[in-house]
Simulated scan of single mutants.
Amino acid sequence: MTSAATDEQAGRRETARRLLDSSETLSYDPVREVDWETALDEDHHGASPEWSTLYGTSYWAELTPRQQRELTRQEAASVASTGIWFEMILQQMMLRDFYAKDPTDPAFQWALTEIADECRHSIMFARGAAKLRAPAYRPRRFVIELGRTFKTLASGEAAYAAILVAEEVLDVMQRDWMRDERVAPFVRTINNIHVVEESRHMKFAREETRDRLRGAGWLRRQVNALVVAIAAYFIVTSMVSDKVYANAGLDLRRAIREARANEHHKSMLRSSCAGLMEFLASAGLLTKASAWFYQRANLL
């Protein structure tokens, strides 16, 4: 092993040790931290209104405050359900990646810690969606099957960069929600827990992406950039199910039409992903082909 490779491995282990230490000192138990007992207060939103897919449209302006709040509650539940779906993909990819590796390696131990975090997050999101009185929102069957294939085949930088995309998009919107007093207090607590703990996960994903790309050639970067962008497209476009509009009592066709044309929401997504796109570009994972998918998903 060369001196540079030894230094890189030592640096990777040190990062994992720091993340393990952080997890020991700053982690939460959602069962105790979240107020699950108090009844849902319908005077609160489920998410910051500005993040609603209809905010800024003529339809939004016609909705009563009560309808607006119900819509954001359904949208927040849909985002949570999509989060559960991808967290299950994430856990399987990490287990497969670290299968039969050295358990004394801090990176191995951190991977198990992150998987444990994601299990708690998924349960927390599930309970939160139920408290918001929302049904089980799921991606379309086609997307579910794509996810099944992706979690089985994706590895290396493709897996970790895709993990980073999903976590970064959620992180920015949830930082807004957790500070917004219009949002239900239990939802704000959920968001705060997720933001704090996911910050460690994102650091690990960035480090793993960089590490796996060392020495990667042009073709490999081109292929993986495209794989990550396609995954990002389906993750982001699945976040808010079309069914939220009907469940909020809205005109489904009109809501879908206006949401898809909503420039305000597209702008919110693009601004939330500025740092992510900068990272992907620096890693050589933002190519002309991949940019097309990010633009289609309103991330670029």
Rank of each mutant, 00 (worst) to 15 (best):
H265R: 09
V143D: 11
E145Q: 10
R296K: 14
T152D: 13
A107V: 06
Y160G: 05
R182L: 10
S22F: 09
D242M: 04
T82I: 12
V183T: 02
I190Q: 00
L269G: 02
Y160W: 10
L132S: 12
Q74L: 15
L40Y: 08
A255N: 06
Y245E: 01
S282G: 13
Y28S: 13
R141H: 14
S272H: 00
L40N: 10
E181T: 13
D35G: 09
W36G: 07
R260F: 05
R270Y: 03
D43L: 12
S78V: 06
L269I: 05
L250F: 07
V196I: 13
L276F: 06
K288G: 11
E42D: 15
L153K: 14
L90Y: 07
A39I: 07
R212I: 03
C273E: 05
P65R: 12
R210S: 02
Q295L: 01
W218I: 14
L132A: 09
N224Q: 12
Q91F: 06
Y28W: 15
M173E: 07
G147F: 04
A255V: 08
R69M: 10
E258F: 00
Y233T: 05
A161D: 03
Y294T: 01
F234V: 10
R141P: 09
E62W: 03
L63F: 11
P103C: 02
T15D: 02
A10K: 04
T82Y: 07
G11T: 10
D117V: 13
Y28G: 11
H264R: 03
A248H: 09
S238T: 11
R254M: 05
R140K: 12
W110L: 08
S3V: 14
S282N: 11
H121V: 02
E278S: 05
E263D: 08
D41C: 09
R214F: 04
R12S: 09
T72D: 02
G56S: 03
Y28F: 15
A289R: 07
S27I: 11
P106Y: 01
A283D: 01
I193R: 09
R212W: 11
S271K: 03
D102W: 11
A47K: 08
A184K: 06
A158W: 06
I115K: 14
R182A: 12
A259D: 04
Y294A: 03
T2S: 15
E258N: 06
R221T: 05
T64L: 00
Q9N: 08
A76L: 10
D242E: 12
K131I: 02
S23H: 08
H45I: 02
R66D: 13
I190H: 07
A100T: 06
E208G: 01
Q92Y: 04
E207S: 11
V183Y: 07
T15E: 06
I123W: 13
D251I: 12
Y59P: 08
I115C: 08
G46L: 10
E197S: 09
F279W: 07
L226G: 02
E118Y: 06
E278Y: 00
D35T: 03
T189R: 02
T189Q: 12
L132N: 03
